[in-house]
């Protein structure tokens, strides 16, 4: 069979795998939803969570589509579609693809026509490199979670603090990332201020939403505050980029 990076058979293979992932998500959703009913949880709240999660995901998912477009320039559509629907994210996949390409003497972003051999090699490197979390999880997650549970049973206050520390640790890392180009202002380049202003705009909108929620008690605010804050922050980036970029 003649090879092309956009061959229909590659679309069929990627489509099948994406379908499997979709089915896994549906399976876990049904299992958790039934459990929520069993626990007599407030199903209005659960439905609110479903709506909120769906709305929140739209904007990040569009950014993943942009990542697919970026990678498709070198790799065609099926492989980036697969890689970004399963396991990976843009930076991981770009580094893996670029390492595999340079190992074969190619330059990432400047590849005109991949051969089937080069394509298979890149796909193999990208797949093996990033698989660790999927197969490691069934081996360690039960033990890991029961370890956390034991800590919580031994000392409830520390258990809660530990959980919050993990969340705060993640947020602190991304806070640092927002400021990573801040130093550029000392060289006369103000573009590093754009993410900082976007960060604070989004934070301010979220804070206003919190105050509105307290005052009005309208539950929809809880479900939509995060996506709305994100969109306002991102929209702010457009004039900011013209001004500072």
């Amino acid at each position: 069979m003649n090879f092309s990076i956009n061959s229909p058979i590659l679309f069929a293979l990627a489509g099948f795998i994406v379908l499997c992932v979709f089915l896994q998500s549906v399976y876990f959703l049904i299992m958790a939803y039934r459990r929520a009913k069993e626990l007599n949880m407030d199903m209005t709240k659960v439905k609110g969570v479903i709506k909120g999660a769906a709305v929140f995901t739209v904007v990040p998912a569009i950014s993943i589509v942009i990542a697919v477009i970026t990678l498709s320039k070198d790799l065609g559509l099926p492989l980036p579609w697969l890689r970004l629907s399963v396991v990976g994210n843009l930076s991981y996949e770009t580094i893996a693809a670029s390492n595999a390409e340079s190992a074969m003497g190619l330059v990432f972003g400047k590849v005109a026509n991949l051969t089937a051999q080069q394509y298979a090699t890149i796909a193999l490197v990208m797949t093996i490199s990033i698989l660790v979390g999927i197969w490691l999880l069934p081996l360690v997650s039960k033990r890991l979670l029961s370890g956390v549970e034991k800590i919580e049973k031994r000392d409830k206050v520390w258990g809660d603090l530990l959980q919050n520390s993990l969340f705060i640790g993640m947020i602190a890392a991304f806070l640092g990332f927002v400021f990573c180009d801040f130093g550029l202002i000392f060289h006369g380049d103000t573009s590093g201020l754009i993410p900082v202003f976007v960060f604070f705009t989004s934070a301010a909108v979220m804070a206003v939403a919190g105050i509105l929620l307290k005052v009005t008690k309208i539950r929809a605010i809880t479900d939509y505050a995060l996506p709305v804050s994100m969109i306002v922050g991102m929209a702010m980036a457009i004039p900011l980029t013209h001004w500072l970029g």
């Binding site: 904007v59 990040p60 569009i62 950014s63 942009i66 603090l161 919050n164 520390s165 969340f167 705060i168 947020i171 602190a172 991304f174 806070l175 990332f177 927002v178 754009i194 993410p195 900082v196 976007v198 960060f199 604070f200 705009t201 989004s202 934070a203 301010a204 909108v205 979220m206 804070a207 919190g210 505050a225 995060l226 804050s229 994100m230 969109i231 306002v232 922050g233 991102m234 929209a235 980036a237 457009i238 900011l240 980029t241 970029g245």
Partner: peptide, 28 residues
């Protein structure tokens, strides 16, 4: 639209950060 999508992470963590940092500021 490009500048807006380039700033998705700062926008996301600005909104999340204000909620979680304000509640856990001592450990943050």
């Amino acid at each position: 639209l490009e500048p807006a999508f380039a700033q998705i992470i700062p926008a996301l963590f600005g909104a999340l950060g204000v909620v979680f940092i304000s509640r856990n500021w001592k450990i943050a």
